[in-house]
């Protein structure tokens, strides 16, 4: 059986690929896609721990993954809605040019 550490290494690498993409890309839709990738990496580690670590209630980690699914779907819907509304308002989606709040 593949050891738990291999799954954790995969999840960590995937998380940091997503983190770098989120910081490096300019398009807002791309940033949202990278956030989804990071959430997926966390889900992999949750399912892996649920499969390998003994617990009084087996499968609790998997149940948690379902809640992460729901919340990430909500986040994607609201984020892409904001992206489309911003595009209507400003005709552009680059995070460099959306500096109206001077943050």
């Amino acid at each position: 059986m593949t050891p738990l550490q291999h799954y954790l290494a995969l999840a960590t690498i995937l998380f940091f690929i997503g983190a770098w993409g989120m910081m490096a890309r300019r398009n807002i839709i791309m940033v949202i896609m990278c956030i989804e990738l990071m959430l997926n990496a966390v889900n992999i580690s949750l399912v892996a721990f649920s499969n390998y670590m003994p617990s009084p209630v087996p499968g609790r980690g998997e149940v948690f993954v379902f809640f992460v699914f729901g919340l990430s779907a909500a986040e994607a819907a609201v984020g892409l809605g904001i992206a489309i509304a911003l595009y209507r308002l400003r005709e552009r989606l680059s995070v460099d040019e959306l500096d109206g709040m001077k943050g």
Partner: peptide
């Protein structure tokens, strides 16, 4: 990423031998 991967992949877990997902 390298630091976290090394830390997570070399830590000792008292994981079970058989799959536990129900």
């Amino acid at each position: 990423g390298i630091v976290l991967t090394v830390v997570l992949a070399t830590a000792a877990y008292d994981s079970s031998e058989e799959a536990l997902n129900p």
